[in-house]
Design a binder for these strands. Structure first.
Length: 461
DNA sequence: TTTGAAATAT
DNA sequence: CATATTTCAA
């Protein structure tokens, strides 16, 4: 092993020490590539035929981080076999031939990338990306001994120093956000913590960390995303990142689009909502970043964090607000909320589940709970107006429940048109808001008693 | 630990 | 007042 988890701190120049298996029949150019890679501090083992290579990886499983395999017209079969055998090893195909079907087959068999020769330095230098990609896509249990340290390292690099100290940081985050636009290039000791996070239109800046249990740091988010397959199978490792974002279109339907975000510009999109802020441009409300105050749950690498960071960013306002910034419940955000609730049905519509369904990064369960409560109260006080605002004109997800609203209905009803203008969210028919309150409070209680008010606790009026 | 309601803050 | 967060008891 090049590096164990304990070596993390010592792993200064990240790609350094990654072990590369080079399978290439042409010894001369193999040597060339090898030496180039070694200049970049990769550790290269050259194998000249398939059998040796396969033996190497089977004898010492986990002893390579990445493989580079040359495919030619003659050895395709062998290459395919390699790919099939070495599924766990990120494998980069290199070739002098340009055969689409060969390329496709390689990729289909799991090749990480197909590179045309000659190989540029950049291509070679960046092969580590596939290792990281692999490390993050593999299930925790599948992480080999060689992959685990990689992941840990990357995690530690992405880890935010700011999470230990509280309040001070988020003001600086704001200032940073405006200016940090291109801080992505030279990361060494101060590794970027602005790793571009996926963002939704509502949440233009994807870096909001909450301090409670809902906190998902970027790393976790990425991992999570990978596990859910949201990001798709894209193995291409580029300098840009593909993000899947949800976009609310004008007709109120939720569409998913993939956008390509250049990491260097992502942050410029960040917008912080603050009372004095120069008007947030319309397009985006935004969640804002938070002070981190309590424990950091980043067990394994907690000591990696960089305490200097805090002092780097004096709090310009001297303001010590521990209070979280408000979440701006934009119509779009609210829409997602409503849809989540509808999908769940009233029985299941509890904050944590709603939160799950909403899939809005940075939003906390508390936010959702609060919103839930608030909306319910509103409903109680001013049912009419509010209800109107809740409805989604062309969105047929909503149903009218003339009778007892029971939950069991399919999650989506894409184009179900209603001709009535009596659209009310399942939980909130204006004339029944009291009952609804009762129902929300007591999911198990199914009898519907119009006009009877229930509440869990006495309501001081 | 999570929830809904109540208390507060902005 | 509106609307969010925080607190708190269950």
């Amino acid at each position: 092993m090049v590096c164990t988890a304990d070596d993390l701190l010592g792993w200064k120049d990240f790609p350094k020490g990654l072990k590369v298996l080079l399978l290439k029949e042409d010894g001369i150019s193999a040597t060339e590539i090898k030496s180039k890679l070694e200049e970049m501090d990769y550790i290269v083992s050259t194998l000249f035929n398939l059998d040796d290579a396969l033996m190497e990886i089977s004898n010492k499983p986990g002893s390579f981080h990445v493989a580079i395999v040359e495919v030619s017209t003659n050895n395709q079969h062998e290459c395919f076999k390699f790919l099939e055998t070495a599924r766990d090893l990120p494998t980069i195909m290199i070739s002098n031939i340009q055969c689409l079907s060969t390329m496709m087959k390689c990729i289909a068999l799991g090749a990480a990338e197909f590179l045309q020769q000659p190989l540029s330095e950049d291509k070679l230098r960046n092969i580590w990306q596939h290792v990281v990609h692999k490390a993050f896509n593999a299930k925790e249990s599948d992480l080999t001994k060689s992959l685990k340290p990689i992941k840990d390292t990357v995690v530690s690099m992405l880890q935010l120093p700011r999470e230990t100290n509280d309040t001070e940081d988020y003001n600086l985050l704001e200032t940073e956000n405006s200016a940090q636009s291109r801080e992505c290039e030279n990361e060494q000791s101060t590794v970027s913590d602005k790793f571009p996070a996926p963002s939704t239109p509502q949440l233009k800046q994807g870096c909001r960390f909450s301090d409670d249990g809902d906190c998902q740091d970027h790393t976790n988010f990425l991992v999570d995303k990978a596990h859910r397959g949201i990001e798709g199978e894209s193995k291409s490792v580029d300098t840009t990142c593909n993000y899947l974002v949800a976009e609310t279109t004008s007709d109120n339907s939720l569409a998913e689009v993939t956008v390509t975000v250049d990491p260097s510009t992502t942050a410029s999109e960040a917008m912080i909502k603050e009372e004095d802020s120069l008007e947030n441009s319309r397009s985006g409300s935004s969640l804002v970043s938070h002070p981190q105050r309590k424990e950091n749950k980043t067990d394994s690498i907690s000591e990696v964090k960089n305490p200097r960071r805090a002092s780097l960013h004096p709090n310009p306002c001297g303001k010590k607000s521990n209070r979280k910034m408000k979440v701006d419940w934009t119509p779009d955000l609210h829409k997602r909320f409503v849809q989540a609730v509808e999908q769940l049905g009233v029985d299941q519509a509890i904050p944590s589940r709603i939160l799950d369904l909403m899939k809005v990064e940075g939003l906390t369960r508390h936010n959702v709970a609060s919103h839930l409560q608030y909306r319910m109260q509103r409903r109680h006080i001013a049912p009419k107006d509010d209800d109107r605002r809740w409805q989604h004109p062309r969105d047929s997800i909503q149903r009218v429940y003339p009778q007892k609203p029971i939950m069991a209905y399919p999650p989506y009803h894409p184009n179900h048109g209603f001709s009535t203008n009596q659209f009310y969210p399942v939980w909130g028919h204006p004339s029944n808001h009291l009952q609804n309150i009762q129902m929300w409070g007591h999911p198990g209680f199914h009898t519907w008693h119009p006009g009877v008010k229930f509440s869990r606790t006495a309501q001081p009026e």
